[in-house]
């Protein structure tokens, strides 16, 4: 127990890469956040501060609460204790604030969650038109811009079911980007993809990272983590066990559970 607590405290500290800390630089501030599913304690005393422009990769065994944690950030899951402040707005039951946060936070899901009854273009323009009240023409221009960025403008008139998994996930990323979000959350974006499609999605994500997007990414793509992450977080049993910059995280993990996890996913 003591060892775990110590690790949590160490993990909860500020990122090692020193940054000028002022309140406007903080994108997400999670303090002492707890969540239960019924009686089951899924997230335990989570402390996490994400700076603007920071790219964070979260990994950990299944059931460790990593997806639940990032889903709390845009209120797809409700937390019961502690506070989450996103872009200066604290998440409460106030629906207005939830809406405000969701407008600024994009999310990409494991199973894409594209809307099958709408074309690719309509998927991308829906939220700008209805949430941002943008004129249709402008929304379509923006959508085409982002579809070009993810390299599938020629699919704009098709329906999601006519696209491959990798293409669908790239559309899902473009759809989020059309809302011009300040923060992007990725919940295992490549886990449901065939191996040859993972790269095309990761390429888009690397591109985003290089442009300075604030990203929280739950993934087991360790190559991606090494390449773009400022920080890698390891979660287990609902707590942050260890966090570090990628190089020391992979070469010199401190916690026993991190070592075990890394040995299992890196040398199988």
């Amino acid at each position: 127990m003591t060892e775990t607590t110590a690790a949590t405290e160490r993990a909860a500290g500020a990122p090692r890469k020193k940054m000028e800390v002022s309140s406007t630089d903080v994108a997400i501030e999670i303090t002492k956040m707890n969540k239960w599913y019924g009686d089951f304690h899924v997230l335990k005393d989570i402390d996490l501060r994400v700076m603007r422009g920071e790219r964070i990769v979260i990994c950990g065994p299944s059931g460790s609460g990593k997806s639940t944690m990032i889903r709390c950030i845009n209120r797809l899951e409700e937390h019961q204790q502690g506070s989450i402040v996103v872009d200066g707005i604290e998440l409460t039951d106030d629906l207005k604030k939830i809406d405000e946060i969701r407008r600024e936070v994009g999310m990409v899901f494991q199973h894409f969650n594209l809307f099958p009854h709408l074309t690719i273009l309509e998927n991308c323009t829906l939220a700008p038109i209805w949430v941002r009240k943008m004129p249709r023409k402008e929304a379509e221009d923006i959508a085409m811009h982002y579809l070009e960025r993810v390299k599938i403008p020629e699919q704009a008139k098709k329906y999601p079911g006519q696209l491959s998994g990798g293409q669908q996930q790239r559309v899902a990323i473009a759809r989020s980007l059309c809302m011009n979000p300040k923060i992007m959350l990725f919940d295992e974006p490549t886990s449901a993809l065939d191996p040859e499609m993972i790269k095309e999605v990761l390429d888009v994500m690397v591109g985003l990272a290089e442009e300075g997007m604030t990203m929280l990414c739950v993934t087991h793509e360790m190559g991606f983590a090494r390449q773009v992450a400022n920080r890698v977080i390891f979660m287990d049993q609902g707590q942050i066990v260890e966090q570090n910059e990628p190089e020391p995280f992979f070469s010199n993990p401190q916690h026993e559970r991190t070592k075990l996890f890394l040995s299992q996913i890196l040398h199988h």
């Binding site: 845009n74 407008r103 809307f115 829906l126």
Partner: peptide
């Protein structure tokens, strides 16, 4: 996932129902 996709984009309840859930 359809509900979550719509919510994550910032659609309100009735927008989500009218545009995403009910048509399907």
């Amino acid at each position: 996932g359809q509900y979550e996709g719509a919510q994550a984009l910032g659609l309100r309840f009735w927008q989500m129902m009218r545009l995403i859930i009910l048509p399907q």
